[in-house]
């Protein structure tokens, strides 16, 4: 096995996988994408000059890989399905909720569901900042943004999460009450 791959795997694999799973919300797809990350990294590893940290460099590649994947999906979805107003995306997403999330308490599940309401960039910022624990500066390096753009995006994403969690809480609470009345 390639020593570079071995080294990268030991140091970053689970973090990269976690990042991709939360970003694309599908474990199988994340498994596929993390391989694409390695292919891109191994091919350009020699050119990495250490101007950013190895970890931020890897995450920036992972984010690019995910975005490319979204673009490809968007391409054929737009062409074939969107015309017919398929509204099954939400259901599909719930179906694909990882077991690790399903068994968690409701707040965790609400947050996971609410992340879907964020744009890809907002979701990326949230995952990088809170799940991967990168600083604002590191996040800016990964995304190729300014620090102020990271802060603004983070702020907007948190606002969306708050609103959506509230919606979910009310919806589930309402359903609980209705069940009680019916009894």
């Amino acid at each position: 096995m390639d020593s570079v791959f071995d080294d990268l795997y030991k140091k970053y694999h689970q973090d990269l996988f976690q990042f991709l799973v939360y970003l694309v919300r599908n474990k199988e797809q994340a498994e596929d994408l993390v391989q694409e990350v390695y292919i891109r990294v191994l091919k350009s590893y020699r050119n990495f000059e250490g101007r950013s940290s190895e970890k931020t460099w890897l995450f920036s590649i992972a984010r690019n890989v995910a975005i490319d994947s979204f673009r490809k999906q968007k391409g054929w979805k737009t062409k074939i399905f969107e015309k017919f107003d398929f509204s099954s995306n939400q259901i599909k997403d719930e179906d694909l909720m990882p077991d690790e999330i399903t068994i968690q308490r409701e707040e965790i599940r609400w947050i996971y569901k609410s992340l879907l309401k964020c744009t890809i960039n907002q979701r990326a910022v949230i995952i990088i900042r809170y799940l991967q624990d990168f600083s604002i500066i590191e996040t800016a390096q990964i995304l190729g943004w300014t620090e102020s753009k990271v802060k603004t995006t983070q702020h907007r994403a948190l606002k969306i999460l708050r609103q959506e969690v509230e919606n979910l809480r009310l919806k589930e609470g309402y359903e609980d009450e209705r069940i009680q009345v019916e009894r």
Partner: peptide
Amino acid sequence: EDILKQMPVIKD
């Protein structure tokens, strides 16, 4: 933010 930091680790 607190809940986000408690999101479960999903492993490969």
